[in-house]
Amino acid sequence: MNRTGRSAGALLSAALLMAAAACTADGDNGGGASASCANLFTYDDHSYLDVQQVDFTVGRKLGVATQPPCNDTGQSDRTDEPTTTTNAYKVAGLSPEVAVAIGDTPKEALLFAAHTGADLPPEVQKFIDGAG
């Protein structure tokens, strides 16, 4: 693996680890906390987080991906945030078990990897390393 691939992999792993926390708070607003949620979608009973963008080929449409409401307020009973839905597409060279492309159209779709903890699935990491 070349230096660029290792650097990209390290940055990607760090980004995935941070996103796995789902929300991050910023306490520098007069005592209150503001947060933003991870870009998390579900498709076919799997959770997917967005990853560093690399060149990939979008395949056929698989179905509908769902983004749950973001509860960045800390109020667990808050239900006024809508669930978002969009399309999930196959990524050429990867199983939908480990990665999908998500977006309204194939041209707008971004790469999402199965959320399996702090590390990317090995197949996705190898795919990214090979793209650099």
Rank of each mutant, 00 (worst) to 15 (best):
L62C: 09
L62F: 07
N29Y: 04
V54L: 11
T116W: 02
Q125E: 13
A38E: 03
P69G: 05
T66V: 14
N71H: 08
E81M: 08
A22R: 14
V58F: 11
T4H: 02
T83S: 12
A10V: 11
E81P: 02
D44I: 00
Q75R: 09
K90E: 15
T79N: 07
I102D: 03
D44P: 01
V124P: 11
P96I: 01
P68V: 01
A22H: 10
A114R: 03
N39V: 14
A65L: 08
A15W: 12
P82E: 15
P68I: 09
K90H: 10
Q67C: 05
D119M: 06
D28A: 12
F127G: 02
S95H: 07
V51E: 11
D55Y: 07
G5Q: 08
A21N: 04
P122A: 14
T84M: 03
H46G: 03
T116Y: 10
T42K: 12
P121D: 12
D28S: 05
Y43T: 00
G93W: 14
P69N: 09
A19C: 01
L94M: 07
K107L: 13
D50M: 01
A131L: 07
L94D: 06
A14G: 00
Q52L: 15
S34C: 01
S13N: 04
V54W: 15
K107I: 15
N2F: 11
T105G: 02
S34L: 01
N39W: 13
I128P: 07
A113T: 00
T85H: 01
T42C: 01
A99T: 04
A118F: 10
G63W: 13
Q75W: 12
A88I: 04
D80S: 12
A65D: 06
T105K: 08
L94Q: 10
A92L: 06
H46I: 13
G31H: 00
Y89T: 14
F112H: 14
Y48F: 14
Y89A: 08
H46Y: 06
G32R: 10
S34A: 05
T85M: 04
G130A: 10
C70L: 04
D45G: 01
G32K: 02
V64F: 00
T84E: 13
T85F: 01
I102T: 02
L16H: 05
S7C: 02
F127K: 03
A118V: 12
S95I: 00
D104V: 15
P121H: 08
